[in-house]
Write a protein that binds this DNA or RNA. Structure first.
Lengths: 133, 133
DNA sequence: TCTAAATAGGACTTGTTTAGTCCGCTTTCC
DNA sequence: GGAAAGCGGACTAAACAAGTCCTATTTAGA
């Protein structure tokens, strides 16, 4: 059908791990080891989650990550957006890229695909990481 | 979020065009011109749709394509599968590839993702190309 | 105040996938 | 026999995803 990026998979596993360890701070190294994800890659992922306010971090020795919100307020959609950026079923449905399709005028499927897009979004918007336990 | 491949987009546009032209036979050349899709690429797509029994074709002069079924019996899921093959949100959810994930044992998100996969499938399984008018 | 442990983040490499092209074959009608 | 159509393998190029490398910064504690 349609695939998660590896990074999103890793993000979900990491978030679940952090959630399960709450309220303790968890380090990237610990997650990488326990969940078996390349450390450098995971670091990037956690940093993105932090910059999108899904995680908060503490630097320095004894630093680490912790959820920025309760698990039932962290939505799948936000996680995906944080990691992969804005996406949609088609390029022309991505906010800000509407005009870039050279089929624009003749496009015969825009409106039904747009409707489908909304339905997919509804699915992802309602899932939180507390569903991932 | 998550994206259609260009080929699936083209398939949808082509199928809609063929559906609208029914019961006339339509050539790949005509679709390519009207819908503005590279001819060679479109040919491949139509051939796959044919081999998956979504279209029937007639060879030779005055040949062309026509839907193999009524539009409301041609499901989005089948179109996507015909073009892109078996896919799922994660590799390990694709039938026949279950064992290939090295996180298998430790994977903490398999069951919730599997549930989500079913929900996404439900969405795609119920859509037909008659919804694309 | 030095060091170790942690996050932060840019730059790069590698591998895979997608999109698209090229070319020759077969089928069928006139 | 030739033109118009589908059939289909092999290839190329560009884009993207995944992963690596390296260096800086922050902080706690000896």
């Amino acid at each position: 059908m349609i695939r998660f990026s590896k990074k999103v998979e890793y993000a979900l596993m990491a978030l679940k791990f952090i959630s399960a360890s709450s309220p303790r701070l968890v380090t990237a190294r610990e997650i990488a080891d326990k969940v078996n994800i390349p450390y450098d890659l995971l670091s990037k992922i956690l940093q993105r989650l932090k910059s999108e306010k899904i995680l908060t971090s503490t630097q320095g020795t004894h630093g680490g990550y912790i959820l920025a919100n309760s698990p039932d307020k962290i939505f799948l959609q936000d996680i995906m957006k944080a990691i992969d950026g804005d996406r949609a079923l088609t390029e022309c449905l991505v906010a800000g890229k509407e005009g870039e399709c050279n089929l624009e005028e003749s496009c015969s499927i825009k409106s039904p695909v747009s409707k489908l897009q909304k339905e997919v979004e509804d699915l992802f918007r309602t899932k939180t990481i507390s569903d991932f336990v």
